[in-house]
Design a protein around this nucleic acid. Sequence first.
DNA 1: TGTTGACCTTAACCTAACCTGAGGTTTTAG
DNA 2: CTAAAACCTCAGGTTAGGTTAAGGTCAACA
Lengths: 157, 157
Amino acid sequence: MQQLKTVLSVGEVAKRTGVSVATLHFYEQKGLIHSQRNAGNQRRYSRDVLRRVAIIKVAQRTGIPLEQIGKALSVLPLGQNADQHHWQQMSQQWKAELDSRIAQLTDLREQLSMCIGCGCLSMAHCPLRNPLDKLAAQGTGAHFYPLPGEVLPEENS
Amino acid sequence: MQQLKTVLSVGEVAKRTGVSVATLHFYEQKGLIHSQRNAGNQRRYSRDVLRRVAIIKVAQRTGIPLEQIGKALSVLPLGQNADQHHWQQMSQQWKAELDSRIAQLTDLREQLSMCIGCGCLSMAHCPLRNPLDKLAAQGTGAHFYPLPGEVLPEENS
DNA sequence: TGTTGACCTTAACCTAACCTGAGGTTTTAG
DNA sequence: CTAAAACCTCAGGTTAGGTTAAGGTCAACA
């Protein structure tokens, strides 16, 4: 049994990480991963790329866009192993975002549940009709979506 | 006070729903909404379009793609009011999808929490390293992402 | 009646996250 | 040594969900 390979070709990395070669090129272009070149101009990766790609994939599962992942990764020492501290920092931050996304969806689900009962989408009562909650009050003004049959204080005609 | 307007111009619908005119054209092109034309070829909407757009926006907040929304909407009577039954059907289905998306993210969060503690992303123990859980066993084979320093049962060299 | 604002269509452009193909070089296995 | 497999770059394509622009028509108000 020999020593572990210390450098990997793009194909090996692809196989190991489960992403395509094209994707690795793409990630490199976006600055998410890095490589050295050999005499024949072929990419040679140090093993830390495996961890980086693993991190990328985890982060993507949380719904974080690549650009943001890139920023987080940029604090990792290049070509070195991410140390535990860095990883903890990142994952803690991502967990916070996950928390918030989950909270949003959970809110929505609750509203949806309520509205399944009433089936109304009624202007006056349905929170779903005014998703403007916190986002509102900055837009084009109050949006009013009257349902047919509702009598409204509408501009005449 | 007069009768409610029964037809709406594209601009009115845009104002009321908060989406742009271009977006309404786009939705129409995608078959999500429908319109009549007046003598001068301008779009005239019946009021149910307001409800349709409201539904579209709610569904989008749950992360459902337009195409799928379109399918759901297609069961609504055209130019008529969505009845309570239809709406309940849709919202129930969407709630189910929301449930599943929330569950996925919650799983991920749990794993992330665990891994914040250990900070390892270790092959042997970290669930995050093998997101292949249920999705796996159909791909390119078991993906193994060894960390540097880990001794692996690797093909030699 | 005129002019401005609202509409029309078609087509091109945008971001994200890749994928595909062409044309050419390098590496590797026999 | 040679052929196939792997790699390279660069350009263009893809999907989703729109946005922007160009060039022309329609309608509402004074």
